[in-house]
């Protein structure tokens, strides 16, 4: 005779237990791992936490959102400035940018960091930046390389994205000299510039964190207004996401993600993007996102010669991102092919 419990008995027991679960909470509340009478939980909740007056609440919010000074000197004033985001070791695009920006009358060129990663032979961009007079700030790549961190600090959780990010970071770390890394470590984390009447704050990720992503579809107007007010400026320029956008806020301030010149903007075009700023009428800021063509075939050849992952090369040749997809919000992800 078998000791096995008949299947129908097991099924009945499971069904009864499920039914019990569905009705277990009548009149009861879950407090941690226990069930307690609902009234007991509600009474405990009523007495918990703070209850400020309206005036105290206003004061609390004001304190919490108060501006913080950074003492960063203001450069300029300029009439016309070019600003680029991540170079990603794309020396071909950087050369094209220097030509294009000068041709368009830029008085100064700024770079928002992430000089390496993704592309080949990262050190090639160093003399171009220095000789081209490009005023550069630190990206998370520079901060990580200069401090000897073992990853790029982008915070990927997806194993595939992590795999490619690790290859990219290791390659860049191995192909950057100690002198180049030391120079990266000396770059400022932020700059301020004046374009016409407008004082603009230049950062890599956001004014708060070098690796914060500011995407168009996840950066609400009120959030951006607060960043601008807390940093006492008329506008913010950032990069880090790889995608360019511009929003003029109700206050008149501008938030501009300059995009990157290291790889295409996940739009099916091989061009990369930078931002051109000028003085508009009535003292406003003029913002133009400029598409930049460069010798992407040469870049792809160099990447293959260096043994960089084929999905990176595919992005250069097609304009569609194949990696770092995890960071994209729903809307930006839907706009791409992968």
């Amino acid at each position: 005779m078998s000791n096995r419990i008949p299947e129908d008995h097991q099924a009945k027991t499971a069904k009864a237990s499920r039914k019990a679960k569905l009705t277990a909470h009548r009149g009861l509340a879950t407090w941690g791992e226990k069930l307690v009478p609902l009234g007991e939980f509600r009474r405990a909740v009523d007495g918990a936490g703070r209850r400020l007056s309206d005036a105290q609440r206003d004061a609390a919010i004001e304190r919490f959102t108060a501006p913080v000074g950074d003492g960063v000197p203001v450069e300029g004033p300029y009439r016309r400035v070019a600003v680029c985001g991540g170079v990603y070791a794309n020396a071909y695009a950087l050369e094209a940018l220097l030509d294009d920006a000068r041709r368009r009358g830029a008085e100064a060129i700024y770079c928002l960091g992430d000089l390496g990663g993704f592309g080949p032979q990262p050190e090639r961009v160093w003399p171009l930046l220095v000789n081209g007079g490009v005023r550069t700030i630190q990206g998370n790549y520079e901060a990580s390389l200069a401090s000897g961190r073992d990853d790029c600090n982008c915070g990927y959780a997806d194993p595939r994205d992590n795999h490619y990010a690790a290859i990219s970071y290791r390659y860049t770390a191995q192909h950057s000299s100690p002198a180049f890394k030391a120079w990266m470590g000396e770059l400022p984390e932020r700059r301020r510039i004046r374009v016409g009447e407008r004082e603009l704050l230049l950062v890599h990720g956001s004014p708060r964190r070098i690796n914060e992503f500011l995407f168009a579809s996840t950066s609400p107007v009120d959030f951006l207004e607060l960043l601008v007010a807390q940093n006492r400026c008329h506008g913010i320029l950032c990069t880090h996401t790889g995608l360019h956008w511009h929003r003029r806020l109700p206050s008149g301030a501008d938030v501009i993600n300059a995009g990157v010149i290291g790889r295409p903007a996940n739009d099916g075009r091989t061009a990369v993007w930078y931002a051109m700023l000028g003085c508009g009428t009535d003292g406003t800021l003029e913002v133009e996102h400029v598409p930049l063509s460069y010798d992407h075939q040469a870049l792809a050849r160099d990447m293959r010669r260096e043994g960089l992952p084929e999905p990176f090369v595919e992005t250069v040749l097609t304009g569609w991102w194949t990696t770092c997809l995890e960071i994209l919000p729903a809307r930006e992800r839907a706009a791409g092919r992968f």
Partner: peptide, 16 residues
């Protein structure tokens, strides 16, 4: 489900 996890009635009460 922990009354001790409650910080206040409005967001302004919970900034500490």
């Amino acid at each position: 489900n922990e009354p001790g996890g409650k910080m206040g009635q409005r967001l302004a009460d919970s900034l500490g």
